[in-house]
Structures are given as C-alpha cells and as structure tokens.
C-alpha cells in the first residue's frame, strides 16, 4: 500500500501531509504537525481526550483516517484562544476548577465548544450528553458541567452585547 498526500486545514493553516493508508488524524496532528493539545488517552475511541472539530463537528481524531479530512477544516484546542485572551469556555474551566491533572481537558473543551456552537443555551442534560464520551478520572465531572453552563451564559451575554 502506498502513501498518499492529503491536504486539509488546521485552524487557518493549510497543511499537506504524506501518510501511509489508515494513519489517524490524531497521529498526524500530534506527531507530524505538532498539535500536542490533541491528547492520546487510549487511541481507540474510548476516552475523548483527542477530540477535535472537523468542519465544526466533534470527532475523535484517533478513529479517523486522515484521508477523511481531505479538503476539510480541522480545529484543535490550539486555535481556540486568542494570543492574549482565553475563550470563555477556557476561562470557565479555570474559574470552576474543571480540571485537575489536565490531560482530559483539551478534549473536554473541544466537545464543549461543539455543543455551544450548536446550542448556545443547553440544558444540564444536554451538557452531560455532550461530555458523555469523554473520560475524566480526577474531577468527578460536576465542575466540568458547571463550567460549560457558565461559559454558555458568558457567551450569551456577549452575543447580546454585540447585537
């Protein structure tokens, strides 16, 4: 089986990678392109630590062959914050101590981002649904759910101000 060149976007950056067939998006992002915010808790779809957005949809990058993102836009945690300002989800994670060791945090933030992009005013049950595929071993989840709810409020008030 021969390697092939795959082109896609990571954030605003156009990238082109040479990959063997079935190389995962996770492997390419972490080890070819240096996006190490994409974590590797299990590499088999069980922990959510590698979650990224593909055209805005949350995806487990460890399960996705990189060929599948050809021509699409991948968003990793690196793209979320401005250089001098955190995204409201990130700030809420700090405010609510929604992490301890921090290893699951990138995936948690990304699935939260996907949720709030889709539904700016989620119920608690909807927040828990969004987090259901992500494993946290430290916090007990409650602080994460609170952070997402708080971020939704902040984003809503910002939206109201900009209108």
């Amino acid at each position: 089986m021969v390697s092939s060149i795959v082109s896609f976007q990571v954030g605003d950056r156009e990238v082109e990678v040479l990959v063997a067939p079935m190389t995962t998006l996770q492997t390419v992002l972490r080890y070819q392109l240096g996006y190490t915010a994409v974590k590797e808790g299990c590499r088999q779809g069980g922990c959510g630590s590698c979650a990224v957005l593909v055209d805005g949809e949350p995806v487990l990058s460890c399960l996705l062959p990189v060929e599948d993102v050809a021509g699409r836009r991948v968003t990793t945690l690196e793209a979320l914050a401005e250089p001098d300002a955190l995204h409201p989800i990130q700030q809420a994670f700090i405010d609510h101590l929604a992490f301890q060791c921090g290893y699951c945090t990138p995936g948690m933030v990304m699935v939260s981002k996907a949720l709030l992009d889709r539904d700016p005013d989620p119920s608690r049950a909807e927040i828990l649904d969004a987090l259901a595929g992500n494993v946290c071993r430290c916090t007990g989840y409650a602080p994460i759910a609170e952070a997402v709810a708080d971020a939704a409020r902040v984003l809503a008030s910002r939206g109201a101000q900009s209108r």
Partner: peptide
Amino acid sequence: KDFSEYLMPGAHETPEI
C-alpha cells in the same frame, strides 16, 4: 482492556456531591 470495558460512572451518573 480499555475504557469501553472498564466501567466507571460518566458525566450522567454523577450524583450531588
């Protein structure tokens, strides 16, 4: 062998603490 077989409560199972 992995998180799909090793059972732990998830976000939905978290009680009031």
